[in-house]
Simulated scan of single mutants.
Amino acid sequence: MAPNLRSLFSKGRNPASVAEPAPPRFIEAGGRQILLTIRENARAKRLILRIAPDGGAVVTVPRRTPKRTLEAFLGRHRGWIEERAGGERAPVVVADGSSIMLRGEPVVLRHMGGRRVSRLESGTGALLVGGLPDHFARRVGDFLKKEARADLAMAVAKHSEQVGLQPRTMALKDTVSRWGSCTADRRLSFSWRIVMAPPFVLDYLAAHEVAHFVEMNHSPAFWAVCRSLCPRMEEGRAWLKANGAALHRVRFE
């Protein structure tokens, strides 16, 4: 039988005994040790994570939640805890010598001058950016938008073929509130920053919006369609929830 969390909250099973508090536990976030409080609630139906006024993280768990379930939950939400409890992280400024993510892998940015072209250098993990230094950040952004459009077009085409419906249009934006959208007449919109995420995350996002071609809602039927298009749906959702904010910290100005 899998270990459960009862030992974290009390000793023994005697109702008359006074529960002893669990020893303090911390989780690393943003280079700091954040106090982690685990609270068992008999009425809880799922694990709930919030940030306390003192900056610590609090997890409410149903009774007899297996320890491995808690650990997996914390692993998926470590980025969320870091973003909200670990203090404000400095934005990533796009400049010569800095590093950003592309398809989930780090890419070093290098200004090469000369022609106004940008290209990935095989074997070095570097993005070589041409043109004037004043246009460096904009050219990096343009390169990412081009790559995002190609990757999303391929993913959307694959999923559209599976559902037997094609999109009317596909637009790229730099939205903060949502990663993608789909209208009733199948007009798609995506945040181009998704190209910085691992490919399975981009694939999930494309599948999510194409699934709206069939179900214009978030009903169980919708999630069934989405899962059939993207078997790694849960993993993609969890990655975006935990790490999506980091993609918005990259500044292209």
Rank of each mutant, 00 (worst) to 15 (best):
Met170Gln: 07
Ile194Thr: 04
Ala157Tyr: 03
Pro167Phe: 03
Arg149Ala: 14
Leu205Lys: 08
Ser228Thr: 10
Arg251Ile: 04
Ala246Trp: 02
Phe190Arg: 09
Leu144Gln: 03
Ala245Thr: 09
Gln166Glu: 13
Val210Gln: 08
Ala157Glu: 10
His159Gly: 12
Ala238Thr: 09
Phe143Val: 06
Val176Cys: 04
Ser228Val: 05
Pro199Ile: 01
Met216Leu: 12
Glu209Pro: 04
Ala206Trp: 12
Ala150Gly: 07
Phe222Glu: 12
Pro133Ile: 07
Phe143Ala: 04
Arg168Ala: 13
Gln166Ser: 11
Ala137Thr: 04
Arg139Thr: 10
Glu235Phe: 05
Asp203Lys: 04
Phe136Gly: 14
Ser228Asp: 14
Asp185Ser: 13
Pro167Gln: 01
Pro167Lys: 00
Thr169Ala: 10
Ala245Tyr: 13
Ala197Asp: 02
His248Pro: 00
Ala206Met: 06
Phe213Pro: 03
Glu215Ala: 09
Trp223Leu: 06
Arg168Asn: 04
Ser189Tyr: 01
Glu209Trp: 09
Ala184His: 07
Ala150His: 06
Leu172Ile: 00
Gln162Lys: 05
His135Arg: 15
Ser219Glu: 10
Ala245Val: 08
Ala221Gly: 13
Leu240Pro: 14
Phe222Lys: 04
His212Ala: 11
Ala150Glu: 07
Lys145Gln: 09
Ser160Gln: 05
Pro199Arg: 15
Thr175Met: 08
Ala245Trp: 15
Ser181Val: 05
Glu234Arg: 15
Gly180Asn: 11
Arg232Ser: 15
His159Arg: 02
Thr169Asp: 11
Gly180Phe: 08
Thr183Asp: 04
Val250Tyr: 02
Arg138Gly: 14
Pro198Thr: 06
Gln162Ala: 15
Ser189Cys: 13
Phe143Ile: 04
Val163Glu: 10
Leu127Gly: 11
Leu165Thr: 06
Ser219Arg: 01
Val250Thr: 11
Glu161Gly: 15
Arg193Asp: 08
Arg178Pro: 01
Arg193Val: 01
Asp134Leu: 11
His212Arg: 14
Pro167Asn: 00
Leu229Ser: 09
Val156Asp: 00
Leu229Phe: 05
Leu127Cys: 07
Leu202Asp: 07
Met233Trp: 09
Arg251Pro: 01
Leu172Cys: 03
Gly130Ala: 13
Ala126Asp: 11
Arg227Thr: 15
Pro220Tyr: 00
Ser219Gln: 07
Phe200Gly: 03
Lys241Leu: 10
Ala184Ile: 10
Thr183Ser: 15
Arg237Pro: 07
Arg237Cys: 08
Glu147Gly: 00
Lys158Asp: 14
Ile194Cys: 05
Pro231Tyr: 04
Arg232Val: 07
Leu202Gly: 13
Arg178Thr: 08
Pro198Lys: 01
Glu147Phe: 00
Ser191Lys: 06
Ala224Pro: 03
His208Ile: 01
Thr175Tyr: 05
Arg187Trp: 04
